[in-house]
């Protein structure tokens, strides 16, 4: 059976219906990305899946015993709260230091164990969030705009990391993103959301769908071309030349 199965889901805040009759299936090992404009109900969908928002109607069913690794959109740690990366990794799971280190390595930041969370850069912080989500070997990774605050090469590297994690562990990935330019390359399926499911399919199918173009404009028609642009090198040699 599917890991996550959403049927006819509607979510409303008071009189304001944000999601109408949404359906979604997540199969083992696949990477599904939800795209959509602001206010299209992306976050509400994810909140309904983790049980933070009660549906107005419809059903969200998770495979029994499903282990979810959740990477929040933005995690604000108050200045008054001291916490090391190691302690943060053990927030909900009692695990050995070696397990923390393995998860950090899988997320691409192996050397941060003893650092304070407040001293991390934006990219390091998001990778630690990813590592924490990996610590209980989840069946599904859920990511809510996990690359907010990262620049484009940073986001691209982050999504590449997600793909590597999926390839290494076989976990399914369901993520929300607004990084149209970079997100689709790593996705098996894209769901375009705007209160309801506008269109869905492989990245190439969605990018050429008229519904998608109506939402994001013709300007993003080049998205596929853009994300195929390789960012496998950085540009420090310009600086070296300047010096």
């Amino acid at each position: 059976m599917s890991l996550i199965s959403v049927n006819n889901l509607s979510v409303a805040y008071g009189a304001n219906t944000v999601l109408r009759n949404v359906g979604l299936e997540l199969e083992p090992g696949e990477i599904v990305t939800i795209v959509g404009p602001n206010g299209s109900g992306k976050t509400s969908l994810l909140r309904a899946i983790i049980g933070a928002t009660a549906p107005a109607s419809g059903v969200v069913s998770l495979k029994p015993g499903l282990k979810i690794g959740y990477v929040p959109q933005r995690l604000h740690i108050d200045q008054t709260l001291p916490i090391t990366v190691e302690r943060f990794m053990r927030l909900t799971e009692r695990v050995k230091a070696a397990v923390c280190t393995d998860a950090l390595r899988a997320a691409g930041v192996p050397d941060l164990l003893k650092r304070q969370m407040s001293q991390l850069s934006g990219g390091q912080f998001q990778r630690v969030l990813l590592a924490r989500a990996l610590i209980n070997r989840p069946d599904v990774l859920l990511l809510d705009e996990a690359t907010q605050g990262l620049d484009q090469p940073g986001s691209a590297a982050f999504y590449q990391q997600i793909e590597e994690v999926r390839n290494a562990t076989g976990c399914a990935v369901l993520m929300i993103s607004h990084d149209l330019h970079v997100v689709m390359s790593a996705s098996d399926r894209v769901i375009c959301l705007n209160g309801h499911v506008c269109c869905e399919g492989t990245p190439a199918v969605v990018a050429s769908a008229p519904e998608y173009r109506a939402l994001f404009g013709a300007g993003t028609g080049g998205a596929l071309a853009l994300y195929r642009h390789e960012h496998d090198h950085d540009h420090t040699h310009h600086n070296e030349a300047a010096e």
């Binding site: 049980g51 933070a52 929040p72 995690l75 927030l91 909900t92």
Partner: peptide, 17 residues
């Protein structure tokens, strides 16, 4: 303790756990 700390850090993270 663990539940309070997780909820304090992030509400969604708590729900997902």
């Amino acid at each position: 303790w663990a539940a309070l700390l997780t909820s304090t850090l992030n509400e969604e993270l708590a729900y997902a756990s």
